[in-house]
Design a protein around this nucleic acid. Structure first.
Lengths: 168, 168
DNA sequence: CTTGATAATCTCAACGTTGAGATAAAAGCA
DNA sequence: TGCTTTTATCTCAACGTTGAGATTATCAAG
């Protein structure tokens, strides 16, 4: 059997035999890229079913898993979410309008604002996250469980080597 | 050692012990998502160094590896690139303006257009792709080669199961 | 205190993508 | 031949993100 990445590498081997020896990272990164798109598209649909954007869902789950008081600074999302500041401001604006979160100024430093999950936000997150996990399980339903674990372990070592070790 | 995904799962385990048993797909998909962002960001910078967008680089390499006559229909990009038709039209517009590709109508079917790599497009692709592979190799420089292969093989099986088997 | 530097968030124009609809050509069928 | 359906591409407004710069607050020195 072969997948889309095998096909791509096969094409390169024929057209550019001079680069064949340098294609081995494509075996890993090419598959990561394709899988990410498939999984993201699926996750996006799940979030949409609950009326939230993909990025908004990310904010919701980050807040919920942070535990009480379910409030984090805007800056912490910046570091954790791998997007720029403008995107965060935009997300919070829309989520605030939907009543999912609220901006609160507390503490000594009045530059910082905290984004706090509202009760409504909690409910949406619980429902959406349950669907999200069910969707994930569905995607992997026909994949050997042991293979999933071993592959995930391999990816973890790559992530560690690349320095992606903290959520911040 | 632990990575960002371990930290995320650890937070869930504490805040939502009821979902712990359903988190196993996150071990795989969470890492795929994070790695995809890191790798994409890096690849984007490499492409930018050659004056092309990430998506444009995708079109260039797809054309080059397709072999002579280095021309494909717009529709084939649609199926291969996982983006919508508007994005393809937009990409080709800009690439045509840069002299990287040209639209040609040939053959019996006058609905179809073929996107053909220009000589300049060929040169840019060769240079950018060489840099791209060097960048990929650099990212994996400190990762055990055998681990890369085994992990890639695991991902291939997941892709096959999800049905991503052709480039089209 | 002031001054300068640093830090946190917001603003906003430019950009690429989405997705529904438009346009036009080809194919199927009576 | 006409008529409908299908196929291929383009149009365009809405959307989320980027990234540089503005704004406001805090901190560190003198």
């Amino acid at each position: 059997m072969s997948d889309a990445v095998d096909a791509i590498i096969g094409q390169w081997a024929k057209e550019r035999p001079d680069v064949v020896e340098d294609l081995w990272p494509v075996e890993l990164f090419g598959r990561i890229q394709r899988l990410a798109r498939v999984v993201d598209k699926s996750a996006k649909a799940t979030a949409a079913a609950h009326g939230v954007e993909h990025g908004e869902f990310d904010v919701l789950t980050t807040l919920q898993r942070s535990g009480p008081p379910y409030a984090l600074t805007a800056g912490s999302f910046l570091k954790a979410s791998m997007v720029t500041s403008g995107a965060i401001t935009n997300r919070i604006d829309k989520m605030e309008a939907k009543g999912l979160v609220e901006r609160v100024r507390e503490g000594d430093d009045r530059r910082t604002i905290k984004i706090r999950l509202t009760e409504h936000g909690h409910e949406v997150t619980r429902a959406a996250f349950a669907d999200h996990l069910a969707n994930y399980a569905r995607l992997l339903a026909d994949v050997d469980r042991d293979l999933v674990e071993k592959t995930a372990e391999g990816l973890r070592q790559v992530l560690e080597t690349l320095g992606d070790t903290t959520v911040k």
